[in-house]
Amino acid sequence: MQSKPIALTILDIVSIIVLGIASYLALVFAPTEAVMGDVQRVFYFHIGTAWVGLVGFVLAAVSGIAYLITKDMRWDRFEVAAVEVSTMFFFITIVLGSIWARPAWNTWWTWDPRLTTAAVTELIYIAYFMLRQGIEDPDKRARFGAVYALLGGLSAPITFMVIRLFRTIHPVVIGNQSAEAQGGFSMTPDMRTAFFFALFAFTIIFIDMMWHRIRLGGLQEKVEQLKLNVSI
């Protein structure tokens, strides 16, 4: 059995520390927002998780292409890890968005472009795991997974553009159109600190979790191979 690399242990510790700091910045350091009150504090985690979720899905599509070209199983492990971790983070994003929407817009859910795209994307990646589960041959599983990750990564941006044609109330926080939609707010410098630190913290946590998941994938592959050897 391979032992855990020291770098990973360090990364684990760093992840816990940055998560603590990010929580402190979001909960205590950042000022209370004047219109929405305390619930605005979930925004930092909402953005942080959304950011790593998106990055993960892009990584998954790219590693899907890389797998199809190289046929190297390591890309497949990377892709599964990216999809799984991102799906988890995206789930948090969606729930936090919903929790925020309730006091801000007086509804748990609105069919606005970002929310809907997030939900559709989440469904695509749940379908991704259902697809993989139905295939026994590891090579075929990797190929199909790569193709589907690629299709999902391509269709998500178009989904977003299409749904935007319908209607929106989601605030645009970055950029200067913040007054356009209800529920937006402008950030004070302290809020900005918490905001950017949350992005940084979740990036670290994402990398850490990816690393663990990739190692898990390697172990899975080893066990699968051994099973074949022993049964023969």
Partner: peptide, 24 residues
């Protein structure tokens, strides 16, 4: 069709990816 759960899988795979084409 090459998977174990073939009959139920196609709509699950297809609909979320085909959302843009249907909505547009």
């Amino acid at each position: 069709v090459q998977t174990r759960t073939r009959d139920v899988l196609l709509p699950i795979l297809l609909f979320p990816v085909a959302v843009p084409v249907l909505l547009a």
